[in-house]
Each structure stands twice: as structure tokens, then as C-alpha cells.
Write a protein that binds this DNA or RNA. Sequence first.
DNA 1: AAATTTTAGTGTTCTTTTTACACTAAGTAC
DNA 2: GTACTTAGTGTAAAAAGAACACTAAAATTT
Lengths: 231, 231
Amino acid sequence: MSKTHQYKFPRPALTSDCVIFGFDGGELKLLLIEREKEPFKNRWALPGGFVFLDETTEECAKRILQEKAGLKNVFIEQLYTFSEVDRDPRERIVSVTYYALVDKQHYELIAGRDTLKVEWFALSELPKLAFDHTKIVKLAIQRLKGKISYRPIGFELLNEKFTLSQLQALYEAILEQPIDKRNFRKKILGMGLLKALNEKEKNVAHKAARYYSFDNRAYRELTQKGFHFQI
Amino acid sequence: MSKTHQYKFPRPALTSDCVIFGFDGGELKLLLIEREKEPFKNRWALPGGFVFLDETTEECAKRILQEKAGLKNVFIEQLYTFSEVDRDPRERIVSVTYYALVDKQHYELIAGRDTLKVEWFALSELPKLAFDHTKIVKLAIQRLKGKISYRPIGFELLNEKFTLSQLQALYEAILEQPIDKRNFRKKILGMGLLKALNEKEKNVAHKAARYYSFDNRAYRELTQKGFHFQI
DNA sequence: AAATTTTAGTGTTCTTTTTACACTAAGTAC
DNA sequence: GTACTTAGTGTAAAAAGAACACTAAAATTT
């Protein structure tokens, strides 16, 4: 990359912010960090940071997830780019935002390693957020709600093996509406995307449910044949 | 905005590029401009330009549409942010892309006003594009194809008044599949989103079709009541 | 060890939506 | 006024979605 053609325009700074979703079996949660510095010192915020010259915005988002929340190998997808001129009081900052879906249980312990204060908040009990982060979160929720029905991304929020009841509870939490158990099972099993495992729940005070896992390979094959996931 | 907190990181340049869709009654078209300078001199490209400090990326995209293609008051929506490190051979450039839907007929004359060479290309006959613009176009087509069915954005590609056959032809072109005439009419009229005008086609060598217009007000009201557009 | 509590797991009927399909009407060109 | 072309219309069959209630199995309590 030669410097000879460098553009002279003053440039907005470029950051990446992440909306991190988790699911605890009953409710959707968001991972937030507490800001240590001004502006918005001590306010909760989305983890974010500046995009370096040698990384894509997605790589940046993944780096931030790792550095600020201890999350690794996580599903992320671009959400939207926010560019309001006054979104940061210090200077012009454009943010390419991502949303991440993580298996909360799997990461709970790792999340504390960094020195920052990191906490899960129920969507219904979000604190006031720094910058325009509330707006970003709202869009992320809307996107997740829209996408969960026609793309099999919900599995990213669950353990690799899960029961059908857990899966249903997840859909009910995200869509914010009850789903008929029999119809749900009929539909999801009818797609042929779930592998029934020879394993059941243990130490539950009721009939133990069978575990299933998402069959990624089958999904790819079906998709090629024109199949469309739809809950 | 004080300069005291300015970040020292070297910054990617930020641009905005626009994928402009038009419809000529039979086929989807794309508006491209020919590059006057290196790199990719004389190659066709998406209109684009640098984001200034005092404008959002969306305002930038609208400015570019106006400056480079003579388009004004156009429907645009953010597509995706492309940030591959090597997408421009000169230096690191991140591009926030938009797609625009325009009534091609309405703008045909104005488009030539700028000094740049500007031309409509059928999607099936796109030339080799500069930079990663082919990738951007592919994503835009995919997005349009996905969105046209559940958001009433197709009307942006038609004149304010249109016949049902024109509307159907548009859907068939975008979805790349034939649609049954009677079922299409039943569905679209059943939504109550079209105002039947007291006006018919003129100078056509066959039965003249009635004109309709999209009823934006009805759409907003229905949407509030939980209605979901769906073709 | 019997009874209680709790969630897992299963089919059928009715309703709604989607699909498939063919003829008459109205305008212009010749 | 005949030919040509596209507009405009309804019904029946198939598929998908919605509504609904009981038995099975595990741990806990009595």
C-alpha cells in the first residue's frame, strides 16, 4: 500500500461495538461492561474499541470480545453502522456494530478474567447505557427477533446438546410469545436438522428429557437443495 | 467537540458506496459510473466517495447519489460495511454501503447532468467492476431479493401510479420466478395497501389496465395494528 | 414402598392459507 | 369488423398452521 495517493480529508475515528446475547434458560441477557473513564464514567456500556489498520471490523469485534469479556470462538454477525455526528462527545466516531450469540453457561467463569467489571443483565432490567448504546441494543434485539425465525442461529445461545424444551423456551423468550409444545416439536423435528442423542438429562426431579444437537452438515445439504429454515 | 481527547490510532479512511437499482418494466438494472482515474481507470464502479466529518454515512450516500448520478429524494437503506484490509490498493478504506431503489423512468434525463459517464446495466449483463464492487452488488441483490417479500419497498422502483401487471412483473424480476396472476392480485389487493385510481393506461394496443398507487398511510396504520406485509 | 410433584412426550381435528387453473372483456391495429 | 394482445375475474384441492389433553418417567415426600 503506497502512501502516494493518501487522501487528505479529516477522518472520522472508526470503532466496533458488540451486543452480546446470552440465555440462562428463562430469559435473554446482555453482557455489559462498566466504563472506567470519562465520558460516561461508571456507566454501563457495550464493549467496544478502535479498529486497527491491519484488521477488518469483524476481526476487531472478535478481538474486543476476547480482550474485554474473555469470549472466544463466538458467533458474531454485523448489525449496523452508526454514524450520527454527535454520538461521542469527544470527537467524531463511526461505529460498526456486531451482535454475538454465546452459550452463557460455557463462558461464565472465563468472563471475569479481564480487569474490567463485566456483568450479565436481563433485557428487562437494562441500566441506562453510555453513548447511543441503548439505540444499538434496541436494533440488535429487533434483528435477533426477526432473524431467529428464518435462520438457525438460536442454537448458538444453547449448549451443544440441548433438550427440546430448552430450545422452545429460547424461542419463547426471544419472540416474546408462548409456543404450542406439540406443534413446535412437530415442526423442528420435521426439518431433519436435529440429531437425537442417546443421552438424557440427569438429576432432574421429573421425567428426564432427551438431548439433541444441531446437525450442521444436514443443514448445509438441505440448504443447497433449496430448503428454508422456518419456525 | 474538543480535540483534547483525540485518539492517536492511525485511522482507516471511510467511504460510502451506493448500489442503485432501477426497473425498466422487464428487468432489474444497476446504475454504474465509469472511473476516470487510477486505480481501475475506465472500469465501471459503484458511485462512492469519502465521508466528511459533518455528515452521517447516510447523508454522505445521498450526497453522492446527487453529485455523481443526479438522483434526489431517493429511497436508500444501509446494506453492509465492507472492511477487508486490501479492498483498495492505495490505502486502507472501509466502506459503508447503501442500496437505493429509484424509479428509473423518472430520473433517466437528469442522470446525465454530471460530467461523469453514467449508465444503466441489466443485472444479467454487468461488466467487470472495480475494487470489490461485484461482491457488494451480489450482497445487495441478495438483500433486495430477501426483503422485497416482507417489506413494501418494491414500489420505490415504480412510478407513483402503476398497474398490477407492472407490479407483478417487478416481483417476478426480483424473485426470479413466475407468479400466478390471480393469486398475486388476490393477495396484494387483499392487504388493503393499494389505492385504485380512476385512471387507466392510454395508447396501449390492448385492454387498458387500471392504475393503482401505494397507500402509505394505510400501511402505517395497519403496521401499528400488527399487520405484516407478505408477498 | 406408596403417593405426590413435575416435566417429557405424543396425534388428531379444524381452520386458514396456498396453489393450480381458463375463460371473457376491452382496447388498438390492420 | 376481424385479429391481436393484455386486463381482469372465481373455485376447488392441497398444504400448512392452530388448537387441544392425556400418559410416562424421574425424583421427592410421606
